[in-house]
């Protein structure tokens, strides 16, 4: 009796369980799992357009001898290595300053700094392209203040084009990261800071010795998100630098290169799939590395 009932309930639970999760799992299998396996298979194929044949590791060999790929990889890594730390440090400083309840108008400051998050990646890229035009508002302001003597060629010089992409991404995402840190700071006992203050610990030391260690899990989480985002960078570069990857490919990213290989040049699906797997491997490696480093430092 008991057994029969339990079996009955078990089956009843199970049928319902599967019915509820089936649509989501089916869609994810069809539009995520199947394509990602297909692109793995494709990365071992070579050929133009739809006529492809097995090529073994030829695509991987081609990667090493492809200066444009190396360029795109270097650029993507540069964005990641330079931009992510700047943005995270800036967001942390802003969050700890805005966490002070005695700061007048902090709600207003918070909203203002968060506001860039409502813009689409395309819209803000277009705005930045106009603002950083040769005679645009940024150059004319910098000249008026006397910081620079002649206009900076933001859009046409390799170094400055890269700098512009970094400035733009930092503008868009700093407030977003700040929100995570503000939420985490709410959970830190205020008395820790009071004690440190009474003991005469200076503000900067309170930041590096209290705030950063306590926020480590959140910092790690946001670093992983930002890493994955940066490695996939496309919209900004495509819209800031005319879709080609900027002056002499200075801003070209891996995603943009894949797009170019597939939709701009003669389609070469196999090779493009190989480049896309470079991103897959990098995302997995960096996420793993960041978790590993954080765990090591805990000991």
């Amino acid at each position: 009796m008991v057994h029969a009932r339990r079996g009955g309930i078990g089956r009843y639970y199970d049928v319902n369980g599967w019915l509820f999760v089936a649509p989501a799992l089916g869609l994810i299998a069809l539009f995520m799992v199947y394509p990602i396996l297909w692109s793995l298979w494709m990365s071992f194929q070579a050929g133009r357009g739809m006529t492809m044949k097995f090529a073994g590791f030829a695509n991987i060999v081609r990667l090493w001898n492809d200066p444009i790929f190396i360029k795109a990889l270097t650029n993507t890594m540069t964005y990641f290595v330079v931009q992510v730390p700047i943005m995270i440090l800036l967001a942390l400083i802003l969050a700890s300053l805005l966490n002070n309840p005695r700061l007048v108008g902090r709600g207003l400051f918070r909203t203002a700094i968060f506001l860039p998050c409502v813009t689409s990646l395309v819209a803000y890229s277009v705005l930045f392209k106009g603002m950083f035009a040769p005679d645009g508002i940024v150059n004319s302001t910098l000249q008026a203040i006397g910081i620079i003597a002649s206009p900076i060629p933001w859009l046409t010089h390799p170094f400055w084009a890269k700098t512009l992409v970094i400035i733009a991404i930092t503008w868009r995402w700093t407030g977003y990261n700040m929100i995570f840190y503000l939420a985490a700071l709410q959970n830190i006992d205020k008395s820790i800071y009071e004690v440190a203050r009474i003991d005469g610990v200076p503000a900067w030391a309170r930041f590096t010795h209290i705030t950063i260690p306590l926020l480590k899990p959140v910092i790690l989480f946001t670093t992983v998100i930002s890493t994955i985002g940066t490695l996939q960078l496309f919209d900004e570069v495509y819209n800031l630098t005319e879709g080609k990857g900027g002056p002499s490919n200075a801003t070209l990213t891996l995603s943009l290169y894949i797009y170019n290989l597939t939709f701009r040049f003669m389609p070469s699906f196999g090779y493009a799939a190989t480049v896309s797997y470079v991103i897959v491997v990098l995302v997995a490696l960096l996420a793993f590395l960041q978790f590993f480093l954080a765990r090591e430092r805990d000991r």
Partner: peptide, 13 residues
Amino acid sequence: TLMIPFAALMIPL
């Protein structure tokens, strides 16, 4: 699947 970048899906899709 959260770690899958869209760039790796766009050609098959």
